[in-house]
Design a protein around this nucleic acid. Structure first.
Lengths: 338, 338
DNA sequence: TTTGGCACTCGTGACCTTTGAGTGCCAGGC
DNA sequence: GCCTGGCACTCAAAGGTCACGAGTGCCAAA
């Protein structure tokens, strides 16, 4: 087990390195942090920390930099989540309060996160899986063609064209609309399938085909929409990545365009509480020199989606985590209000 | 006026520089292009070209590189549009034919363009200004709350919540829906305002407020939606920009996130025919070292939106223009079919 | 007008040296 | 047993020198 002081040394190394981007040596450490011991002692501690794999030397006779393992320990045990200043909190609130609809909320959130953390922000649209149905509408477009419109409690609207096996009368459609809504409004998406299961039986033989078709499309919409949309922003912050970044930035930009990768990353985040993935903990190769801080957000207790940032492993974890958490909370509030 | 040969020299310089990314000298020129004259002669021509501002020297005793003005001349008079190979054409068609809906068409187009040109691709969603209305639907959500759904001929669906000044009856709403649709279905967005102008007068005094409100929201939707959505892709290609690119890439990434800037850029493109903006011809400062190749596309004769690419001024103009034009044509076809 | 010749420029890369931050280790002190 | 000051060692970074060579401009001759 590492002694108290060695943990302090590790923390100091992480903090200094994050600030200066340069390997930190024993002398500089004792000067900047009042550790109460001499550089020589710190050197001994550093030797131990290196042996344990928490820090490394880029080359002999250079300072040390934290390894992924070192950052991990730092995040888990040495760093808190830095709360935002009240000025920042007010700024967040003001900025988000101006949003007019869901798209706007998401767009503003991503801008805000990017600005606050000075990193790349990723925001997932609220998932439909935990959403409830606000309204289902059926519009006759042509004799055998119906448009299905699904409105969710998060303000999202989805529509699908349905080609029916036979012409549908206005009354049958109105009947279906009424029955459908009475059963599913206010219910969760996940509950819908069994709620509508026996619905065709309530209709005349002629219309059953149509009813089944409409229901099939509805269920399909519910499932399909579980694959989420993402919005990313602040990619210009990638230029702050490091000195050698032609090589670093490339794969990151590529990964950011692969929504699948990002979705998987966010998906790995635990539903409640913040998740931090550091460097090689991230499965995707192009992101091995980045860290991801993600957290779920939602209108109620449950998270309906995730948001987070992607930055260099050498990032200000406490500050980033604080910003991410704060933004997630405010977005949750906004969603709850609307 | 520049002699025939000097134009040839300029063309050779542009081609070589685009290929090698390095200043091109007189000797290399005569070796790679059979100009039939000696390096000394070429040097004289280069001196003239430089005096006229078409080329420049990064420093004394280095080769020449084209200036923005040089590229302009090249594009206008020296370069054709390079048609794609039939293999490329087939690839485009196959790739786009797999699209299932409008979103997918746009997403695929942007990927395709980025891949084909190896640059940053920008695709604007089909504009609503030239679109026609397919259907307008009104859904009662609460006694004084109505959802307005607008379906366009390009397959786009927009919805808005309308808070009415007074409760609306089902019948009044149905009446409004019917009257509204009979007037605007199949008509262009731009014509809608005057078509519905006198609609409130057909209703009872009690409902006029509601009707006016709904109409106001509808018109607002039409106008708002004229501000287009954009999709961009291939940002990873920015890493190919140049050697000094930390400084170059930053403002470009920033500009790409400012949709306003891009919209303006695309907007400047003439409706028919391709537009090429080179370096400082672009008003936005961050994009002064880039060129934009844009062209309109549409399902019929008229362009409904623009698409294009953003790349370094040092780009393969003939090839890029060929790819952009070809993609625009195929997308137009796809849209016309659906 | 073109061409070969020639002197000149100047960025590039190779090679060397110096500098200094940082290290590991050790012997002595608390 | 842990901490500390001292000391020799290492090595990347910074600076300086130098030769190279691609490229230029100019000029006189074809």
């Amino acid at each position: 087990m590492l002694s108290e002081r060695r943990l302090k040394v590790l923390r100091a190394i992480v903090q200094d390195y994050v600030g200066t981007e340069e390997p930190v040596g024993s002398k500089a450490l004792t000067e900047r942090h009042h550790l109460g011991v001499s550089p020589a002692t710190v050197r001994n501690d550093m030797a131990v920390l290196e042996e344990e794999g928490f820090i490394a030397q880029p080359h002999t006779s250079a300072g040390r930099i934290p390894t992924d393992k070192g950052y991990r320990l730092f995040v888990d045990r040495l760093a808190g989540v830095k709360p935002l200043s009240s000025a920042e909190r007010r700024a967040i609130q003001n900025f988000l309060d101006g949003a007019v609809d869901l798209d706007d909320v998401v767009a503003r959130t991503v801008r805000l996160l990017a600005q606050l953390t000075r990193q790349v922000a990723v925001v997932q649209y609220p998932s439909l899986t935990r959403s409830t149905v606000r309204h289902v509408e059926l519009l006759p477009l042509a004799p055998a063609r119906v448009m299905l419109v699904l409105i969710t409690d998060t303000g999202r609207v989805e529509q699908r064209l349905v080609d029916c096996p036979a012409p549908v009368g206005e009354t049958a459609l109105a009947d279906l609309r009424a029955r459908l809504n009475s059963r599913v409004v206010g219910r969760r998406f996940t509950d819908v399938p069994q709620l509508v299961q026996d619905l065709p039986e309530a209709f005349e033989q002629d219309d059953r085909g149509t009813v089944s078709t409409v229901l099939a499309v509805l269920l399909e919409t519910l499932v399909e929409d579980t694959e989420e949309r993402l919005v990313i922003g602040g990619t210009a912050n990638l230029t702050r990545f490091g000195h050698d970044f032609p090589l670093t930035i490339r794969p990151v930009l590529e990964a950011l365009e692969e929504q699948v990768v990002l979705l998987k990353l966010l998906g790995e985040a635990t539903d409640s509480g913040m998740t931090v993935r550091i460097g090689h903990e991230i499965a995707h190769e192009g992101l091995n020199s980045t860290s991801v801080v993600a957290v779920g957000y939602g209108s109620g207790d449950e998270a309906v989606a995730k948001l987070g940032v992607v930055g260099p492993t050498r990032m200000d974890y406490p500050g980033t985590m604080g910003a991410v958490r704060a933004v997630a909370r405010y977005v949750g509030q906004i969603l709850a209000e609307s």
